[in-house]
Design a protein around this nucleic acid. Structure first.
Lengths: 192, 192
DNA sequence: TATTTAGCTATACATTTGTATAGTTTTTTA
DNA sequence: TAAAAAACTATACAAATGTATAGCTAAATA
């Protein structure tokens, strides 16, 4: 939970200067760069500001030179595009449903690439987005036209919603392991 | 047409290291950072590489610390996303549901900031994410715990799903304009 | 073959840079 | 009104950092 951390006028000013410097140069300002823009004669003033801004969650910094990064919070607060992203976004392919017989990962089936936050999807390789066709999973509120965020993994728990490849077509089902080697894939819509 | 000034294997390697460092840290590596990754004992070796890479148009640098930037040419050459300027995601606040009486935009209600692709949300200001509480809209497959992507606009069409502020609490309903000045907000779950 | 380029080592050096110490003044807040 | 927080000045310092000097070897080029 983000705490109530409003900024003073001067702190906001420092944040703006950092944003503008990065937008103009593509690398972080040094503490003395900021001091000069503000007209301050000592680096300590700016250093204090940066400490507060980091504590309030508006910037990230390390001890190495020119390493100030703006967080999502500050980018939203400033109402600007991010010149340097805090967390990476991964471009995931949006897979549609293609004619039977062709594998879903065929290039004709990639509709577009959409950036998805790692905060949402994590960094696992092989993740993708899948457009749902049909209403066989409407009992789980997965309906026609929905876009599923699919995590690729090797194992599944009983009862989990999984994507199975049946005859090269992707089907969304619940996974149930049964006695022996058989596996049941169940639709959540009783009509199926 | 971009002129392809070819790189040697080692120069390409340096370029890759710079890309990966920026992608991981969001700020440029120092010359000695690169030397360490390459296993070189002197900064001069890397410095020579950077001079060549800049002459060939793959990087930009200045004399200040950690100021290496990758050019469009090198990003194209590497076949990767731009690690320093990501202009197609906006950071949106994820709003939760708080105790009655407090406005939903209160800072205590901002749970985190999540980057969302402009391909999904567009670039409208004032957009936000809202965590759903309760099942009054389950008929529209909006259920407890879902995250809604909310577009801020001034008008609504009859029958559209909208977020209304009732006593400072956000409620998700369908919007129906009726004769006269009254407006009906309807739940999609008949139990409500 | 002669010359240039690529790719280094080792060392040195002047800045740049983040951080610290020790204060002062102003503005908020309780 | 007293205390705390914010916002500075001035100075110092070690570490980080880009750059330079003076070499070396191997590969590519003319």
């Amino acid at each position: 939970m983000v705490k109530k951390e409003s900024l003073t006028q001067k702190q906001l000013n420092v944040l703006r200067i950092i944003y503008e410097f990065i937008a103009a140069n593509n690398y972080s300002p040094s503490i003395r760069n900021i001091a000069e823009i503000l007209g301050l004669s000592s680096p300590k003033g700016v250093s204090d500001h940066l400490t507060v801004l980091e504590k309030k969650g508006y910037i990230l910094k390390s001890s190495s030179a020119r390493s100030i990064r703006l967080t999502g919070k500050s980018l939203w607060y400033l109402g600007v595009q991010n010149p340097s992203i805090e967390n990476n976004v991964d471009y995931l392919p949006l897979l549609g449903s293609i004619a039977a017989g062709k594998p879903i990962f065929a290039e004709e089936n990639i509709q577009e690439y959409i950036p998805v936050s790692n905060q949402i999807m994590g960094k696992t390789k092989g993740n993708y987005l899948l457009k749902v066709k049909g209403d066989s999973m409407s009992g789980d509120h997965i309906v026609d036209g929905d876009i599923l965020m699919v995590k690729t993994q090797n194992t599944a728990e009983n009862g989990e919603i999984i994507i199975a490849l049946v005859d090269n077509e992707a089907v969304v089902k619940r996974y149930y392991r049964r006695v022996g080697e058989t596996v049941e894939l169940r639709s959540s819509n009783p009509l199926y």
